[in-house]
Amino acid sequence: MPSNSATVRHVALDAPLLLLAYGLLHLVDGLDGAYGPGLAQNLSYLAFLAAMVLFGVFAAAVRPLVPPGARTVAAIAATVTLAGTACFLWAIAGDLTGAFPDATPVRIAGLLLLALGMLTLLGLLVAARRTPAWSPLLFGAGIAAIIINVGYLPLGALIILAALAPLARPAPSRVVPAARRAPTGMEVKRLERVASK
């Protein structure tokens, strides 16, 4: 089994950690009873933007890890994930520039597309024995926490981090048994005595 690429290993940690940073900064931004404008809001959007970009990178990077017969499904799932991240990037750009008055439908579409694509990819990775069966279940639970209440975003990010953590480790390589050592002279004589009996 080939090792997970360095890209997959890093992005599996970095994307949910940036999502966690976004959630925490969002909470800090709302401590005064209102959200933005200000430094906390701008930093939260930058963390969210980076997280979405990395989820897109993750979707593209894990495609080679799925079984060969499922590469078409993986390509479709990666495209759906990228469409979800594009929706989020468009919504973030609108929030930062004020160009789009209400990006809520785009955010909802982005969340659904991202969840559908990522869950499919994780399911394929379970089939390839690259992740445990609980990985997509945890990812779905993390998304559900975010859908229930945006205030649960840090919790959802931690759950997603746990879901992707198995991919942050290199895949175990098969151990090739070491060559058997040559028998010593005493062992050869003992074998010869046993054979002669």
Rank of each mutant, 00 (worst) to 15 (best):
A144N: 09
L161M: 08
L96H: 01
A75Y: 02
L116A: 14
A182G: 00
A50E: 12
P166N: 10
M1Q: 12
L96R: 08
P136C: 05
G123C: 10
L25P: 12
A157H: 13
L114W: 10
R107L: 05
A165V: 05
E192L: 05
P132L: 03
I76E: 06
L25G: 13
G142V: 12
L13K: 06
P37F: 05
L112W: 01
R63N: 04
D29Q: 12
V62F: 11
G84S: 03
L54F: 11
I143P: 06
A74W: 09
I147K: 01
P105C: 09
V57I: 13
L39D: 12
N4D: 10
L124M: 12
A40L: 01
H10W: 13
L155H: 08
L164A: 10
L122Y: 06
A128P: 04
A127F: 06
A6R: 15
L161H: 15
A163I: 07
T85E: 11
A115I: 00
P67R: 15
I146S: 12
A59P: 06
A34K: 11
D14Y: 14
R129W: 04
E187F: 02
A51T: 04
A163Y: 07
G33A: 03
G140F: 11
L46Y: 05
F139K: 08
F58T: 04
G151D: 14
L96C: 03
A157E: 07
L43G: 02
S3Y: 03
S196M: 13
P37H: 11
A171M: 11
F100K: 03
I76S: 01
L167G: 03
G98N: 12
F88I: 06
L96Q: 08
G123L: 05
V80S: 09
G140R: 14
I159C: 09
A162Y: 12
A91C: 03
P101M: 06
L112A: 14
L114Q: 07
T97H: 00
P183A: 08
Y152Q: 13
L39S: 04
H10C: 15
P68R: 15
N149E: 11
R193H: 14
H26M: 10
T81Y: 05
R193P: 01
L17Y: 02
S173W: 00
Y35K: 06
S196W: 09
A128C: 10
V11R: 08
A70Q: 15
A40K: 03
A178V: 06
T120H: 03
I92C: 01
G98C: 12
T7H: 07
A127G: 09
G98K: 10
T7Q: 14
L125D: 04
A59W: 04
A168F: 11
L25F: 09
V11M: 07
C87N: 09
R129Q: 14
W134Y: 14
R180I: 08
T85Q: 12
V62W: 14
I143A: 13
L31V: 01
A103G: 00
V188N: 04
V126E: 15
L19D: 15
F48I: 00
P67K: 15
R129I: 01
M1F: 10
A93G: 14
M186F: 02
A50I: 09
K189A: 10
K189S: 07
G84A: 07
G36P: 00
A171K: 05
A99K: 00
A157W: 04
V106F: 01
T184F: 01
R71G: 05
R180F: 00
G117K: 09
N4R: 15
A171P: 01
L49P: 00
A93I: 02
I108Y: 07
